[in-house]
């Protein structure tokens, strides 16, 4: 396989970034290993667990299944870009208040899935919330609090916000 690196630009958490990637490197590896964003996690590496969920052009995707070069010239958002250093996103705030994280490994992926859900469906039913995070595996099985926290945050997120 050709290992010559290719240069690409992407908009990462609202900043234009230029990065050199190997041809068959995943977006997850680029984010974690090259760009130092360790929020997205590698759980299974095959798209089953959702721990690597990021937004690609606003849509939740499993970044372990995306080749980095497929994100060229596109918008990527990770958990690091969900809130700001000063203000948590309403979802993060609700997760903290409800004590949702147990081991915490799945949480960045769950939050990104939930944020994408609320962007599409600002007032989801409990069933919609459960389907919205059905692609995220929590080995601590802390789903009940997640659903409660997401429903509460949905009520707090103004319509149309990300």
């Amino acid at each position: 396989m050709n290992v010559r690196k290719q240069a690409m630009t992407l908009t990462l958490n609202d900043e234009l970034v230029e990065v050199l990637v190997k041809p068959y490197e995943t977006l997850l590896d680029t984010l974690r290993e090259t760009l130092g964003l360790t929020g997205p996690k590698e759980g299974c590496g095959t798209g089953d667990c959702g721990a690597c969920t990021v937004h690609l052009d606003g849509k939740a995707v499993a970044s372990c299944l995306v080749l980095a070069l497929q994100a060229r010239n596109r918008q990527v958002r990770t958990i690091e870009g969900l809130g700001t250093d000063d203000t948590l996103h309403p979802l993060q705030d609700a997760f903290v208040r409800h004590g949702v994280p147990q081991c915490g490994f799945c949480i960045p992926g769950v939050l990104m899935a939930a944020a994408a859900l609320l962007a599409e469906t600002p007032r989801p039913s409990d069933e919609e919330i459960r389907y919205g995070i059905a692609g995220n595996l929590c080995r601590c099985t802390g789903y009940t609090k997640m659903v409660t926290a997401i429903a509460e945050a949905a009520a707090a997120v103004p319509q149309g916000a990300r």
């Binding site: 798209g47 995707v61 499993a62 899935a113 994408a116 059905a134 692609g135 995220n136």
Partner: peptide
């Protein structure tokens, strides 16, 4: 198909 994270791809 899959989950929402898979269906977007």
């Amino acid at each position: 198909v899959g989950s929402v994270q898979v269906r977007h791809l």
